[in-house]
Design a protein around this nucleic acid. Structure first.
Lengths: 327, 327
DNA sequence: TTGTAGGCGTTATCAC
DNA sequence: GTGATAACGCCTACAA
């Protein structure tokens, strides 16, 4: 390994001067600078990030803690974070917390021990996720996907509005019995989307029927069983809002098994991207969060915080309606 | 932050002794040890991993460089790596190289600068991916998904056998004109799967028709256009082997647009998991690599190498045929 | 403008 | 068995 000492010897200056050149501090004679840079190039020197991290007390690493790496929404967020961080010279540690509050807690500890510069997190729970240690240490934490009271900043969509947007689409399709399959009751994001649904139902003058609201687990099987239950009702719904992408897969399977055709017998609107769905299911509409951009902006916000910028780092992005009324 | 010095003062011993207790070195009086552990617990001390990394010259971090984070195969590998690494007390830096040799190179540099303990990589190219720097520095590198001559170890399936397995399935379905859509010509894994196809075609006594072999880009649009081309042939194929999952999505779309029914008009076998496909396309068969296990084993192998174990860390796993002859 | 020196928190090598 | 002490590679007062 080639160290700063080697460079300084090669250039005939002290290591302090090398450091100054490399960190871009002012006050180095241009000639000296040239000398140093030549030595750096000649020896192929690259700073040891671990030593730098120890000295500066922060690494150039940001941690990204996500909820579900098998969910395309979160992978898109990842890409956004990664691309944005990379441009700014940061590395990303990715941690998949798996909707598991324990695993998440453990990762938050690791992040602290590794002296990450900051954290981007899609919390497992708005209430239980505890970032106080990080905040106390002065580490910036940006929440995505779910609001977190203690967070330094956040990049979110208004999930109530998004839920209302989805529901209004179904209202516009003249649906009279609109059902909603949402996530776990303790999940605030799921609750918000459901609130939006309720608001839109009320605004349309439709009756709110508790039978038409089902809480499920945000996974395929949850969507599947919920859809089956809805299809078994004495009066079937003619519209269905599913509040996440993986449940939408289960819903499609249930409909397929029962031979129920979209949009003839029921209109369906999902939430968040399923990369293949738009290709293979031309009648499935959806409300889509700008996942990649959420990641990008979160990283940008975090890096701004690290640089001491950004007074109010809270950002609300718009969810988009992808209406697909047939080919 | 509470340091080892704080602990040593609390316990009334030197920091060297604290270190010995914490690293489990032999030769510490049980009574002293108890004292130290009590102090650690009381102060909530946790070692600074950065300082340890600097001193020991290796971190407890392994880097995972993957080809495509939006491909469910790789995300499953990720989970395997992560779960396995976590159990052994390692953190994972995830890097998404995006099939881009430049991006991959850059990540390999970052990994070196961060003093990762080792690397697991699904190479962008068997020829161009250059890990010699890491190997020279003594860092173990485990290749997955694609063989890499210089790698310390590897976890792979035999892609020729897997390709043959897929093709034999179609032969068994009495297909007479079997096509293959494979990945980029310079991709050795794609080439291997194609070789397996050719071998099986020959073994079945079927003619090898160059029109039935298409090289595409491993992405949805590539599969889509390739399938269209095949459907436009004067004599349509009655069997189709698609060598990766994302292209399979494109193929399904093309078939759907043309109204071609599986398995009545054509039998299709894909490669690698599409989490939703098994649910929504009951007639789509596939050959599946044990993605999660590949990740697990790769991490295990790497950690064994780091511990100085594992004389020949090359592992070949079996791909599995998921035959779906209808409900 | 440049050099010297001390320390970030840990571990390893000596003595004792 | 335990305690000083010197690194690991870098950055930053402070001095020159």
């Amino acid at each position: 390994m080639v160290t700063m000492m080697d460079v300084s010897r090669e250039a005939g200056v002290s290591s302090a001067t090398v450091s100054r050149v490399l960190t871009g501090s002012a006050g180095v004679e241009p000639a000296t600078k040239k000398l140093v840079l030549a030595a750096v190039a000649k020896l192929g020197y690259r700073p040891n990030l671990v030593a730098r991290g120890l000295r500066r007390q922060v690494s150039q690493v940001i941690a990204l803690i996500i909820t579900d790496i098998e969910n395309p929404f979160y992978t898109a967020v990842c890409r956004g974070v990664e691309d944005s961080a990379r441009l700014a010279g940061y590395s990303v540690i990715l941690c998949n917390a798996d909707r598991d509050i324990e695993k998440e807690r453990e990762y938050l500890r690791v992040v602290e021990d590794q002296n990450a510069s900051g954290v981007i997190i899609s919390p497992a729970s708005a209430r239980k996720t505890d970032i106080s240690n990080l905040i106390d240490r002065g580490l910036p934490v940006i929440a995505v996907d779910m609001a977190l009271a203690a967070a330094t900043g956040s990049v979110l969509v208004d999930n109530r509005d998004a839920g209302a947007l989805a529901t209004e689409y179904l209202v516009g399709k003249r649906c009279k019995r609109i059902a909603c399959i949402t996530g776990p009751a303790e999940n605030s994001t799921a609750q918000d989307r459901l609130d939006g649904y309720s608001r839109a139902i009320a605004a349309a003058g439709l009756p709110v029927d508790p039978d038409l609201i089902i809480y499920a687990n945000y996974l395929e099987d949850g969507g599947y069983h919920a859809a089956k239950d809805l299809l078994d009702l004495p009066y079937r719904p003619d519209g269905l809002f599913v509040t996440n992408n993986r449940m939408t897969v289960g819903v499609l399977r249930a409909l397929q098994e029962r031979g129920v055709i979209i949009p003839d017998e029921i209109n369906v609107i999902g939430f968040d991207e399923l990369p293949w769905a738009l290709q293979l299911h031309p009648h499935l509409s959806l409300v889509r969060q700008p996942a990649y951009r959420i990641g990008q902006e979160a990283a940008r916000l975090l890096i701004d915080c690290l640089a001491g910028r950004e007074p109010s780092p809270h950002m609300v992005l718009e969810a988009e309606l992808v209406a697909r009324d047939g080919i």
